[in-house]
């Protein structure tokens, strides 16, 4: 696999606080590499060091064989960046924004097909301040792609979007990877990382606490499946606890059972029905990256 980005032991300090505290990883060509973690974990600082927009306090970075610190301008001609925040002047039209940014790069793609790709063709003559939140976000993606970059950085791509717009955005990111590009995706949505990323680095307090494919990360935590339901009468709990391969926790009337496979699920259901229990909201789910984060750091993603 061809290595596109090398990050070794990167540290970024602000006074006494280390926002990024010794992070190392590699990104390979044509993958979607996720950097996930709660707000304030140091994700944006880390990618901005990779983009050359911030100078790390220590460590080694190469992006497309360039040093972002020394060759920042050269590097930014080759990569595409979508910033977490960042608007355009209200009184510029969509196609004018793209024309401007196309002119800043040494190479660029045709603007109309790009607008079509991000679904803004009918808004080409609209002023920036007339766009919805999702449309503004799509314009910022188009700006990140206008130079036909080899590596694209997306920072909190779908924050503030409704679920439908978010899904549309996910499709777009996958298609960028399928077009042969390498994508760095920064997000605090674990679901987004799970759906999109080929590999994920989980960051907490400036450090990588886990790095693997989403599937491998999830398979690391005990119990493949999780059963949730609640009971009117808890007297059945002892019998449920005796089912083989069943890890049961009770909180008020809510029951959570972790188990390895489907057979346990059937057995739990059989016991409940056999005893004529009133059980409600019976769901079976697979653990998610959210659970991975919880099991590694001992805290919830969203606080």
């Amino acid at each position: 696999m061809e290595t596109v980005i090398v990050v070794e032991d990167i540290i970024k300090r602000y006074g006494d606080l280390a926002a990024v505290d010794g992070v190392s990883f590699k990104v390979y060509k044509n993958e979607i590499f996720g950097i996930v973690g709660p707000n304030g974990a140091g994700k944006t600082t880390l990618v901005e060091c990779m983009e050359g927009l911030r100078i790390p306090s220590g460590g080694f970075i190469r992006v497309l064989d360039l040093d972002p610190k020394a060759d920042g301008y050269k590097l930014r001609q080759l990569i595409g960046i979508q910033l977490q925040e960042g608007l355009f002047p209200d009184r510029l039209k969509v196609n004018e924004v793209l024309d401007l940014f196309a002119g800043l790069y040494s190479r660029s793609v045709a603007i109309r097909p790009l607008l079509e790709k991000v679904g803004l063709l009918d808004k080409a003559d609209g002023y920036f301040d007339s766009l919805s939140g999702g449309q503004k976000q799509r314009l910022s993606i188009a700006v990140a792609l206008v130079s036909d970059p080899q590596v694209v950085f997306f920072d909190e791509l779908t924050t503030g979007l409704d679920p439908q717009a978010r899904r549309a955005m996910w499709g777009m990111v996958s298609s960028i990877r399928d077009a042969g590009k390498t994508v760095i995706l920064v997000t605090h949505f674990m679901e987004e990382a799970e759906r999109l990323c080929d590999r994920v680095a989980i960051i907490d307090r400036g450090r990588i606490v886990a790095l693997d494919t989403p599937a491998n990360l999830i398979s690391r935590i005990d119990g493949g499946l999780r059963i949730n339901f609640w009971l009117d009468d808890l007297s059945i709990v002892t019998e449920l606890e005796n089912i083989k391969g069943c890890k049961l926790t009770v909180s008020d009337q809510d029951i959570t059972i972790q188990c390895a496979d489907r057979r346990v699920v059937d057995e739990v259901k059989r016991v409940l029905e056999h005893n004529n229990c009133n059980f409600h909201d019976f769901t079976v789910s697979k653990p998610t990256l959210e659970d991975v984060f919880l099991s590694i750091t001992g805290k919830e993603m969203r606080e």
Binding site: E51, Y73, R76, G86, F101, S106
Partner: peptide, 18 residues
């Protein structure tokens, strides 16, 4: 000040303009 406030200055620097 306006461009800086809306992070448009940063957006421009992120695009290979000095």
């Amino acid at each position: 000040v306006t461009y800086r406030q809306i992070k448009f200055l940063k957006r421009l620097t992120a695009s290979g303009a000095r």
